[in-house]
Structures are given as C-alpha cells and as structure tokens.
Design a protein around this nucleic acid. Sequence first.
DNA 1: CGGTAACCGAGACGGTACGTCGCGTCTTCGA
DNA 2: TCGAAGACGCGACGTACCGTCTCGGTTACCG
Lengths: 204, 204, 204, 204
Amino acid sequence: MPAASSPPRRPRSGNRRDEAARLAVLHAADDLLVEHGFGALTVEAIARRAGVAKQTIYRWWPSKVEILLDTLIEDSNKRLPVPTEQPTAESIRGYLRGFARFLTRDTAGKVLLALIAEAQRDPGTAKSFHQRYLGPRREQERDMLARAIEAGEVSPGLGPDATMDALVGPIVYRALTGSSIPRGLVDTLVEDLLRPHKPRHTRT
Amino acid sequence: MPAASSPPRRPRSGNRRDEAARLAVLHAADDLLVEHGFGALTVEAIARRAGVAKQTIYRWWPSKVEILLDTLIEDSNKRLPVPTEQPTAESIRGYLRGFARFLTRDTAGKVLLALIAEAQRDPGTAKSFHQRYLGPRREQERDMLARAIEAGEVSPGLGPDATMDALVGPIVYRALTGSSIPRGLVDTLVEDLLRPHKPRHTRT
Amino acid sequence: MPAASSPPRRPRSGNRRDEAARLAVLHAADDLLVEHGFGALTVEAIARRAGVAKQTIYRWWPSKVEILLDTLIEDSNKRLPVPTEQPTAESIRGYLRGFARFLTRDTAGKVLLALIAEAQRDPGTAKSFHQRYLGPRREQERDMLARAIEAGEVSPGLGPDATMDALVGPIVYRALTGSSIPRGLVDTLVEDLLRPHKPRHTRT
Amino acid sequence: MPAASSPPRRPRSGNRRDEAARLAVLHAADDLLVEHGFGALTVEAIARRAGVAKQTIYRWWPSKVEILLDTLIEDSNKRLPVPTEQPTAESIRGYLRGFARFLTRDTAGKVLLALIAEAQRDPGTAKSFHQRYLGPRREQERDMLARAIEAGEVSPGLGPDATMDALVGPIVYRALTGSSIPRGLVDTLVEDLLRPHKPRHTRT
DNA sequence: CGGTAACCGAGACGGTACGTCGCGTCTTCGA
DNA sequence: TCGAAGACGCGACGTACCGTCTCGGTTACCG
C-alpha cells in the first residue's frame, strides 16, 4: 500500500494571490524587526521566517520598506485612530498620550521609528513614507486641530502643521533617543502650546 | 645641485599614525554622506575616495558610525557651541536657531540626522551615539538651562531634560521629515515653554 | 514583428545548476594555471576570467583545489586512460610514455604537478587529492600490473605499489624539477624493473 | 633606593648584523613549517615567532623561500653529506637510505619537500632552488656516480643525471605522496638500476 | 671621543585576496 | 497564473598578509 504519508503542506493557492502568504510575510517582518532590530531585517530572513519564496515577496512589494508600511498603516489605523468626533482639548491630549504609548509599547511603534530612520538613508523610502503614511495622517490631525480651534477649544500660537510638529516632535524625539515619555511632558505640551493666553507674533 | 624635483609622493607616515590619512577619511565620509546619502556610505567607498587602504580605516575606527561621530563631534563643537556665558532667554533662542540652521544647512547636520537614524537599526550605534555625543551635549545644555533658571531668565514648566527635548524635539522632527524650520517655530517654543506664567502640575 | 534583436544576454539558469558556468570555471582555472602559474590562481581571478560571480564558485567547490581536481580527473580519464585490455610489457611501456607526455606537454599535466605541490602545503588538499585522484588511479594501475604478472608478461622485484612508484617516481621527479623526460629513461625503467632475471630479497 | 629592575632585554647588536636574530629567524621558519605546514608559513608569523621585526627579515632575505633554502643547505650538508671517499655500491645504497630517512624523519626533509612544491608555484623560487640546492648537490652526486663507475663498482644503463633521477625519484615521490619508504625499495632500485648485466639502448 | 652610519623593534601604510552575506533578477516545476 | 525553490551576477563586508616606509633607540667604527 503505497500512499504512506505525504508531508502535511498547506494547500497552495494556485491562481489567486495567497492571503496566507501575505499575512505570513507581514507578521514575519514585524516579528523580526521587534526581535532583532532593523539591521537584521533582510528580505531573505523574512522569506525564511515566513516560509515563503523570495520571489513571492518581490512580486507583491517593491521593497521591504513597503512591507513595513503595510503593517504600520494597518496597525496605526486600528490602534491609534485620530479622533474624529468633535475634538476637545482633552481628546487631543488623549490622542497624544496614545501616541506616546504607541511609540514606546506597541510593536508597530518600532516600525514607525524604523521607517523614520530608513527615510534618512534613502530618498525613495522618504517619498513613499510621506505619501502613504505621514501625509494622510497629518491631514487627519490637521482636521482635528482645525475643528478644535473653530470650536474655541484650543488656540495655538502657530499654524496647524507647526503646532502638530511641536506637539509630536518631542514625543518622537524621546522615543528615538530611547527615553521614556513622562505623562507630564504631554500635559505640559498641550497646556503651553494649545492654550496660550497672549497674542503671538507669527503663524506658520 | 644636480636633480631638481623627485617624484612628488607624499611622505608616508612610518611608525606613527598618519594625520593626513585620518583627515582624508573624515572628509571623504562627510562628502559621501552629503552627496549620496547614508545608503551609499560604504567603508570601501570611503577608502576609495580618501585614497586610503580599507585596513587603515578598520585600524582606527571600529565602524563607519564612529567615523561619522568623530566628524560630528568636531564640527558641532566648532560650529554650534553651547552658550557658556551667563545665558539669557535670548541666548537660548539664539542657540536653538543655530541648531535649526545646523540641522538644515550644515553638512554636519546631515551627519547628526544620519546617526539618529542609524541608532534605530543597531544598539551598538545607539550606545556609542549617546555616550559620545548626546550625553555630553545634553550635559552642557542642562547646565545652560539651569543657570538661566537660577538667574530668573526663564522658568520652564518641566524638568531640564524634558524641557530641552520639548525645545529640540520639534526642530529635529521637522528636519527628519524633510520640512523647513520656520523662525516662528523656534520663537514660539521658547516663548511658550520657557516663560509660562502659571504653575504647572508635574516636573520631569 | 516590431523589435528585431534584443540584447544577446545568455539565458540564465533559473533553478538548476548552470552548466555553462561550470564549464567556464573549469576552463578559466585551467587557462590561468597554465598561463600564469599556480601562484596567480586566485578564486577572484577565476571568477573574473570565467565571467562568473565568486559566490557561484564557492557554491559548488569548497576550494580552488577541487576545481583543479575536477579538471584533472576529467582530462586524465580522457587523455591518459590506464590500459584495460590484457596488458603486455609493451602496453605498460606505452602507458608510461603517455604519462611522460601528459606531464610535460598536456596542460592537465601542469594541473597534476600543481596538485602534488599544493598537497604539501595543506593536509586537506592532500587528503582530497589522494581520495579522488591518486587512490583510484593507483587502483587501476595495480590491476594492470597484476594481470601482466599473472600473464607472465613481467616479473617485478617489488610489490605492486612500490613497483608503480619506482616507475612513475622518476618521471614525476623530472617533471617537478623542470627536466625533460628522455625516451630512454622510460625504456630502461621498464626493462630493469619489470624484467629482472634473478630472485629478489623482499617484496613491498 | 628604588631603581627596581629594568626589563632584561638581550643586548642589541648596534652596527653589525645580529647573529641571534638570524638564528631566531631560521629556527622560527623551520618550526613553523613543521608544526603548521607551509600554508601557515607567513613572514609575519616568522617575525612574530622569532621576536624580530619584519624589516629585519626583508633586509636579509628576499623572500621566505630563501630562508628555507638557508636552513636546508646548512642541514643537508651537515646531516646528509654526499659520500666523497672512494664510493662503492654499498656506500651509494647507504646514501640513498640516508636520503629516505632524511625526507621522512628529519625536519629538514619537510623543508626540501616544501621547496619542491613551492618551485611549482613560482618560477623565481624554481630558479633559486636549482641554483642554490639542486644544482650543487647533483654535481656532487654525479661525481660520486662517475667515480663508482670508473672503479667498476656499478654500471648503470643510463647517463648519470637520469640514473640519479631514477634512484632518487621514487623516494621523493613516495615522500610527496605521504607513503613510507620501505628498505626493499632502495635496495631493489640500486640492484636493478646500477648493476644490469646486459647492454642498454640509449644513454641520457 | 664625538659624529654618524648601519642595525634593530615596532608598527602604520597602500594593496590584493580571502570567504561570507544579502541584494534583486531569473528560471524551473508543481498545484 | 501563482508560489516554493534556489542559482545567478553583483558588490560590500571585515580579516590576513604582502612588501615598503618611517620612527626612535642602540652600538661600533672613524675621523
């Protein structure tokens, strides 16, 4: 009786894109980044870990950066949504605290930091990162801020982009330099930058 | 006087370290970073450009990161000294404006950004970067801030480190994301974060 | 039919070992050895000459010695077969003359000399050289000798291995020391060592 | 009074060649060859082992081959002199047995094998090896043989060079291929090649 | 008897080759 | 038509020795 035991391989996809392979790649990339750092994140390692051929990766993603962008976009929409209800000073503070937590605790936060870093090395990465992540998200943040101002909840002394950068910058910077982000930092930023009591010089 | 000019080979070093080679390496690294980005910054390219053997680089620097750190430390001490005279709110603003200019205009600024990025990929880089650059510089900045507070020049709502990060973070963040740094941003940061008029909750 | 001729790149191998690359490496190694000597036979030079990546060489051969062994085995089976028909004193003399010609005229002879030499430098080479070349060939030679003795064609005063070494040794030694190999040498060796007319002391 | 102990360094030579250094180099080369094989015999290793600067080696020897030649010439004159008394068949057999022992047991034998090998890689080595070692020694051997013939002690069927090669070749060949050299081999070679009883065809 | 010439140890230097790793492209084969 | 597998050309990695070159210090000879 021949047909003893064939290796228990998962059913291959055939004609259509293999969703299991796609997820395996995304998770493998994520895991490797967290476990061994960006330096060890090679396409070959991802393929090995995901049990997938290198070509399968190159077929669907132009570079490993795009893999990370996929996971980052998915995760940060899911776990760090920009408040869309009528925003208050309080909800903005909440968003920033969430952002701080995201950067320091969530694995997706590492991905964001890695992409900021990678954007410094390669112009292509920078462009893609802006178009697919930073730009859209900033759009939403700008909207949040604009509506809060309109409602009289906050009155920043700077234009919307500069204000967001002034709020987000310190948080990102501490994450990049490996420092923790104390609660008081976020509170004070919000307090000082969103509720000033005297007129300002310029707007940017 | 028989033979006028012998072949103009530069005198080799002999037993001692060759200062000309050291400088050639530092400049080559700098130039390549600015011209082609960190991605193209290979040890072999540096050696080629500097007209130096690869081994000469490895003899003196454990990695290309240390080369960049050498140039960064030298350049930023020279071109962006932390104010040591009795500091005023004004001199702090000047320092931050200088920092913004350094990051966006000076080639050494690119080096700083590249090192921040590289520190995300490799823990060893991160450690060295902190010990040799971030730590010492922060020390000086803390001192500057402390003396300004003591003199009643400024009264930040946060502890010294958090305050510095709140000031520096936005500038770095905009540089990392490729934005320009408007004058008003620095002014407003100084105004809002260093001269608050009411008591704060926490200090960090 | 729009575009006539696309760039004439040779079709790459895909999944299977590239036979063209294998041959290119073997020939390149052979050519370089003959043209510039073993000293100039570096893996990089072979790769360059063969138009092949270094890694392709290391993928299939553990060292350049194994490349040479491959060519040597192939060539000496082809151009210097050990007589397998019922051997006579005459055919043995013919084999030895062929061997002398092989060593001095054939490029593969240079390979053999180079491998004998290299075996002195590195024990690994020595082992491989014995197992893959010297051993099997000696096996055949022993067989040839045994059957000639059995047939009463020759009656050497030594055991088979020692006899073969006594015949082959002078030829190899002259090749190693760069002397020519006169016809009379081979004849006399055969005459004196294979047809002695009185009893001998020992056998080895 | 403190003046503890200055390092007990051996007195340096000053103006004249340092005999101690010369010997240290020769012995270091010999030892390294025997211990780790020719492959590990680098000039740097010799210098290290001999406690000598590299330049001191290059000042006195054009290459490491010449170092080995120095030791080989000295040792083989001392431990394997060519018989100069009126030679007999017996004394020639003794010389060949001594040669076999020299090749397999004496460290200088390894040096000889290494030089034969190295001569295959580099023409310069070959030339030097012939001029300084093989040539002179063969001269003496030829002389030994000629006088033995003249005295009617032996009557080889070949010319002097070919005869010597026929005697020495098998011994060298077995040493090169890592075989032992049985007593019977030497005896039979002498018997068959030096005392033939019928006329020969050619002389070389 | 002081100057100088040749030595020696040490070790930096410009090179070449080593054997390894990952890149992104390619081809084969099976589902 | 896709996916697993994996060979391929390429180029950088960090290391080992090569042979050349000062350097600073030590005699021994010579003027």
